[in-house]
Design a protein around this nucleic acid. Sequence first.
DNA 1: TTTTATTTACGAAATAATTCGTAGGTTTGC
DNA 2: GCAAACCTACGAATTATTTCGTAAATAAAA
Lengths: 135, 135
Amino acid sequence: MNNEKIKPTSSELEILNILWAKGPSTVREIHEILTQNKEAGYTTTLKLMQIMHEKKMVKRDETSKSHIYIADVSQEKMQGQIVRGMIDGIFNGSASRLVMQALGNHKTDTNELNEIRKYLDEIERKNSSVKIPKK
Amino acid sequence: MNNEKIKPTSSELEILNILWAKGPSTVREIHEILTQNKEAGYTTTLKLMQIMHEKKMVKRDETSKSHIYIADVSQEKMQGQIVRGMIDGIFNGSASRLVMQALGNHKTDTNELNEIRKYLDEIERKNSSVKIPKK
DNA sequence: TTTTATTTACGAAATAATTCGTAGGTTTGC
DNA sequence: GCAAACCTACGAATTATTTCGTAAATAAAA
């Protein structure tokens, strides 16, 4: 798994998303999915994926004629990186303001809400087991 | 306040952030702040702000020689728009996963956690007052 | 008043990102 | 075998973004 600082462009991110969701895929497969939403020529998708390979965002298996591409950056890490950039960039460092924006602007069902509650409890447990020095 | 779909580039977002934080400002003032972190020529900043004016992201008061620029997109709306894009784009529509990333990668104290809890309850109240048709 | 500094407008260069045509090689189906 | 379909590599055109030089106007300083 690649470790350097990777900054996917938005087109690259679209492709990574598909690779994360679907697993190893050929250019053709990715292209089919991409063009469900928008126009694009096949070689455009191909070129993008070749660039991503140069940049080491993806690995590929070249044994068969149709190369098989595999995401080589972790989805979790990438999500974390992007979220952190956003908190610092436009939420003035406040994660909770981002959280509220996320929940406020989006339909969130009870199951999801409960998952978040569980998560909050977990964080709190961790917090309370850490000594916080008084000022 | 402007209403059309606005997609600031990342440079534009840096400037908007300063305008939101600091209020109406001259190019010079913005430029001073920007160059605390990075190199940039004055006319570069100027040009960016002129472009933002064309795109109606900012208004400006031209009464005095040094024009005074004012953000013309709401910070809240922009945050919402960006967060929504991210949820759809890389969190497969799951706001809660974004929330967890945000909280997991960030120190969050008990007060903040409680505020978020309150907010969750509020959302749930709203949810339950809506009829959900059975399948 | 004359010079110096500051500001805007404008255009264009430099860089980054996206898109696609064409060529050459493989594979597949007659 | 031969044509049609498909694949990769490559280069280059197009579009978007960032950067900045220069000129003209105005204000400030000397």
